[in-house]
Structure formats: structure tokens, C-alpha cells
């Protein structure tokens, strides 16, 4: 009975969690590629700037970044609504981690592949597009898979900047009903149920893309 009472509120929170996860993932994905390529750029300035971004966001805690963007930025005149602040922080943070995945996967493609591309007179862009990226992308998937799950779990922190996500709703329900065991068990199950298809999805893509290769 209590479940029926608790669920609707939790599902409301789930919706916010899913929205944040999805948007932050998109942002992180784009940033991961931009910064990943940036670190391999032939221009020193670009390499330096991207390395700076990556190291700052990897070297400080997600919570502090979130608070900084939500509470400190307004003091210098940039205030963001909670959702934007949450998505931005998560995107920047996991984009930084993701860029390492992108960078190391690209570097892991054997040099002979680039050389074969040059010997066949592929332009640098086509080499990247048709030879390097398809091979590197498969190698990125396990890393991206882990980060996806990390990001999902990281979204629970946005409850601390007043976003009514899953964790936030659970905390509120707990305060009003005291059904602590039930609520947090449900919370575990729901997070797991989101994470599981994400993991399977990545596996599926991985299997599809590595057909015939090994």
C-alpha cells in the first residue's frame, strides 16, 4: 500500500533525473570529443587550453563544481536556473573524463592504420572519418559505458541545488512519512533499473560494431 502512495512522487523525480541524465550525457559526449581532439591538436594553445579544462574538472569534486556554478557564478553576474546549472556541471565534469577516453582510444589505433591511409592518399579528415574513428569508437564504448553510469549516479547531487530529482523526492518523502527502509530500497531499485538498460545498450552497440573484427 505504501508503495502505491510513494511511487507517483518518486516517478515525478525520476522524470527530472532522466531529463538531466539525457541532457548532461549529450553535452558530455560533445565535450568529450571536442576536448579529446583538442588534446591531440597540432596547435599548442589548443592543447594547453583543453588540458587545463580537463585537469580542472577531473581534479576537483563534482559537488564543489556544482556549488560553484550554482552559488558562486551568480556573484560574478552569471546566474543559471538549477536545471541548466546541473546539466552544465555534469556535462563539463563527465566531458572531461570522456575526453580521456576519446584521446586514448584514438592513440590506441595502430600507427600503421594512419600510414595505410596516407599511402592510399586519404586526406587527413577522411583518414579520421573512415579509418581512425570507426576503430577508435569501438574502443571508446566500454569507457563511455562506465562514465554513463557514473553520470547517472552523479545526478543525485543536483538535489542539493533544489532540483526535484529522484533523490530529492525520496528525501522529502522520507521526512514526511518516515518510511525510510521502503523509500531508500525503492530508490536503489529505480536507479538500478535505469542503469541496467544503459549498460546493455552500450554492450549491444559494441557487439554490433565489432562484427568480424576479432
Amino acid at each position: 500500500m505504501t508503495i502505491l502512495y510513494l511511487l507517483p512522487t518518486l516517478l515525478q523525480g525520476l522524470k527530472i533525473t532522466l531529463i538531466i541524465t539525457f541532457l548532461a550525457m549529450l553535452l558530455a559526449f560533445v565535450l568529450a570529443f571536442l576536448a579529446g581532439f583538442g588534446r591531440l591538436s597540432k596547435f599548442r594553445v589548443v592543447r594547453f587550453l583543453t588540458a587545463f579544462y580537463v585537469e580542472v574538472f577531473r581534479g576537483t569534486s563534482l559537488l564543489v563544481q556544482l556549488f560553484w556554478i550554482y552559488f558562486a557564478l551568480p556573484l560574478i553576474g552569471i546566474s543559471l536556473p538549477p536545471l541548466a546549472a546541473g546539466v552544465l556541471t555534469l556535462g563539463l565534469n563527465y566531458g572531461a573524463y570522456g575526453s580521456e577516453v576519446v584521446r586514448s582510444a584514438i592513440l590506441a589505433v595502430p600507427k600503421g592504420q594512419t600510414e595505410a591511409g596516407i599511402a592510399l592518399n586519404f586526406s587527413p579528415w577522411r583518414r579520421l572519418r573512415h579509418i581512425i574513428l570507426p576503430q577508435a569508437f569501438v574502443m571508446m564504448l566500454p569507457g563511455f559505458g562506465n562514465l554513463q553510469i557514473e553520470l547517472l549516479k552523479g545526478t543525485s547531487l543536483v538535489s542539493l541545488i533544489t532540483l526535484a530529482d529522484l533523490t530529492y523526492q525520496a528525501t522529502i518523502l522520507n521526512a514526511s512519512t518516515m518510511e525510510t527502509t521502503m523509500i531508500y530500497s525503492l530508490l536503489l531499485v529505480i536507479y538500478f533499473l535505469i542503469a541496467w538498460p544503459l549498460t546493455r545498450g552500450i554492450r549491444w552497440v559494441e557487439n554490433r560494431l565489432s562484427v568480424g573484427r576479432y
Binding site: P110, G112, Q113, E115, A116, I118, A119, L120, N121, S123, I131, P134, Q135, V138, L209, R213
Partner: peptide, 19 residues
């Protein structure tokens, strides 16, 4: 690229595209 088009190469370790 213009000149390279006249040249081809076969490598010791093949370097085929595995994908």
C-alpha cells in the same frame, strides 16, 4: 596529395583496415 596519388605502398605488416 597531388604527388602522392602517383605512389602506392605495400607494408610488411599489411596494415589492412580491420573494420
Amino acid at each position: 596529395q597531388k604527388i602522392r596519388g602517383k605512389i602506392g605502398m605495400v607494408f610488411q605488416h599489411f596494415n589492412l583496415f580491420p573494420h
